[in-house]
Structure formats: C-alpha cells, structure tokens
Amino acid sequence: MSAGPQAQRGTPSVLALPGAGEDLRERLVAGLAAVEDLIAARVDVEDPFVAEAASHLALAGGKRFRPLLTLLASELGTGADDRVVAAATGVELTHLASLYHDDVMDEADVRRGAPSANARYGNSTAILVGDLLFGTASDIVADLGPQAVKIQAQTFVRLCSGQIRDDRPCPEGTDPVAYYLSVLEDKTGVLIATAARYGAMFGGCDEHTVEVMREYGERLGMAFQLADDLIDIASGADETGKTPGTDLREGKRTLPVLYVLASQDPADARLRQLLAGDLDDDAALEEALTLLRVNPAMDRAREHALAAAARAQEVLGSLPGSEARDALHALATGVVTRVG
C-alpha cells in the first residue's frame, strides 16, 4: 500500500500520524489493506459493466479517511478484527456511494483526478451505481448485528437529509451560517461519527468510549468538511484531483462565501457581485477565486475549522492516555491543515 500521494496532499497518512508508533502504524496499514481487499471483492459483481462502474471511484484511490478512523478507534479497545474491517468497509462504501450521487448533483467532470462516474457513464448509471453501493454497504453491515443496522439506517437518513438541504437555498428568516453548519453536521459529520463509533463498538470498548468516539466523530466531521470547502477555493486540481471552484460554480454558499456576502466592506463589492451572479463563465469564476483566496473571509473560515478540530480534541480528554488517543488527537489537527 503506497502512502506517497496521501503523505503529500491528503489527510495524514498512517505513516504521518504523530503519536503513532511503528507497531500501531503497521496494524493500521494491515487493516487498510484488508479494507481494500474487501471493497474490491464486494464491488466485483458478475456483470462486467456493473463491476467496472461500481469500482470506478474505488480504484481511483482516495484518502480512506473514514476506514482509517474506524481502525484507529478500535485501537482504544482490542484493535481491529474481521468485524472492525467489515464495519470500516461498510462506512467507506457508503461514502463512495454518496460521491456518485454528489457528482450527479454537482454535474462534476472530475473526481480524484479521473473522469467522474456521471461524466463517464451518464447520470442514470451513476445514480444507480450509487444505490448499488449503498445496498452493498448495508449488506455488509447487516452481518454485524441489529444495532449496527440501526446505526447504518439512521446515518443514511441524516446523510440524505443533509444532501437535500445542501442542494436548497437557506430558508427565509434563517441565519445562513447556522443553516450551513447544520447541513454539514448531517452531510459529513454523521458518517464520520459512525466510522468512529463502529470502531469503538467492534473494538470491544465500553459504552462511555463508544459515545466519546461518536461525539468526536461528529466534531471531526465538521472540521473535515469546513477544510474541504476551503480546499475547493485555495488548492489547484493537481493538489486535489478535483476541479477548483466547483462549489462556487454550482452556487454553493460555503462559509467563506457567506462571510463575504454578509460583508459591508466596500473593498468586497466586486467579489460580492461575482458571488451573487452566474459563475458558469470561466473568466468570472477565475476572478472570483483570485479575489476570494486573498480575502479575510478565508482566514475567518479557517479559524472556524481549527476551532472545530479543537472541539473534537477536547472530547478525547475523558479517555485514558494511550497511543491511539494521541493519534486521534493528531488526526484532528491533520484534517484542517491538509491541502487536498
């Protein structure tokens, strides 16, 4: 398993986690390899076309942040076994499924440096493959018992609710920032919370630790998505594998955009005009990106992301000191300091 691209631009790779000794890193690498094997086995269905489409994003790589979190959370208990690997795989397949749907909604052309599934196979196939992966994830989780099934179902409901609300304008009379942050809790936070929760559950942790990891995951998920929103503006395609400014082009009002739109500073007038208009034009999009990258709203949004990571770290304080806890603490810092 190569950690090269991850170490350069992704969420901290296993080898880059401060606080993780060599033995822990080796266990995490082995666990991630087992997850990769299970993903490959479960998306390799009988029909060649369906198998190709279902494996398209999985083979394109990715940070595997969620399964890493599941494996790392299990280290608070007895560590990873087949059930932890299955739970981690179920979470990652749920995430991959959501990406197929995301790309259709966003009309994306590129994902992870490769053509998006909708660009390659069309919207209808991309949606159906996403559904197939959701079903595959649920099938895996079903073998882990009724509580895991219940958590998976509740996670799926919140994830879809977040996606629906993310695709709609903020209701009149509602604070746009508060609305946006509530969307992130469901759109991203819930699945990362489930990843951490599953790791503690199937790692044999007590109920207190399981609840701590759920709360840690919710807060970490908020930090992760806020950082992603900044990366969409600040980083280039060579760093992220995605087209920069995708959110802006789609008219999504992420945190730095909301801060600019609420600004009364005359210096922000041109940027406000661009953000309130149509950014389908490449020149207008590039101008908006150039102005936004140097706007104080970026620093303000970055501070919010760092604060979310700090809140995730705070909840770990009720757990006894351990190598795994130190690595979880480092992970929270890493998700908001990455560039891709």
Rank of each mutant, 00 (worst) to 15 (best):
Gln6Ser: 15
Ala7Trp: 10
Thr11Trp: 01
Ala16Asn: 11
Leu17Ser: 09
Glu22Val: 14
Asp37Gln: 15
Arg42Cys: 03
Asp44Pro: 10
Val50Thr: 15
Val50Tyr: 06
Glu52Phe: 10
Ser55Glu: 09
Ser55Ala: 14
His56Asn: 08
Ala58Trp: 14
Ala60Asn: 11
Gly61Glu: 08
Gly62Glu: 02
Lys63Met: 08
Phe65Thr: 11
Leu72Tyr: 01
Leu72Ile: 02
Asp82Ser: 12
Asp82Leu: 10
Ala87Met: 04
Val91His: 02
Val91Ala: 02
Thr94Pro: 09
His95Leu: 06
His95Cys: 04
Leu96Ile: 14
Leu99Asp: 02
Asp102Pro: 03
Met105His: 09
Gly113Met: 01
Ala114Glu: 12
Pro115Lys: 01
Ser116Glu: 04
Gly122Arg: 08
Gly122His: 05
Asn123Gln: 11
Ala126Pro: 02
Phe134Ser: 01
Phe134Thr: 01
Ile140Val: 12
Val141Ser: 03
Pro146Glu: 09
Gln147Phe: 14
Ala148Cys: 02
Ile151Ser: 07
Val157Gln: 03
Gly162Phe: 00
Ile164Phe: 09
Pro171Arg: 07
Pro176Asp: 06
Thr188Lys: 02
Ala193Ile: 04
Thr194Glu: 06
Tyr198Cys: 04
Gly199Gln: 01
Gly199Thr: 02
Gly199Asp: 06
Gly203Met: 06
Asp206Glu: 11
Glu211Asn: 08
Met213Ala: 07
Arg219Ile: 13
Arg219Met: 02
Phe224Thr: 03
Asp229Arg: 05
Leu230Val: 03
Ile231Met: 12
Ile231Gln: 08
Ala234Arg: 13
Ala234Asp: 15
Asp238His: 12
Thr240Gly: 09
Lys242Ile: 07
Thr243Phe: 07
Thr246Asn: 14
Pro256Ile: 01
Val257Glu: 05
Tyr259Ile: 14
Arg272Leu: 03
Leu274His: 01
Ala276Gly: 12
Asp282Ala: 15
Leu285His: 10
Arg293Tyr: 10
Asn295His: 13
Met298Pro: 06
Arg300Cys: 04
Arg300Tyr: 10
Ala301Tyr: 00
Glu303Gly: 13
Arg311His: 11
Arg311Leu: 13
Gln313Met: 12
Glu314Phe: 07
Val315Trp: 00
Val315Gly: 04
Pro320Cys: 07
Glu323Val: 10
Glu323Gln: 14
Ala327Glu: 03
Arg338Asn: 03
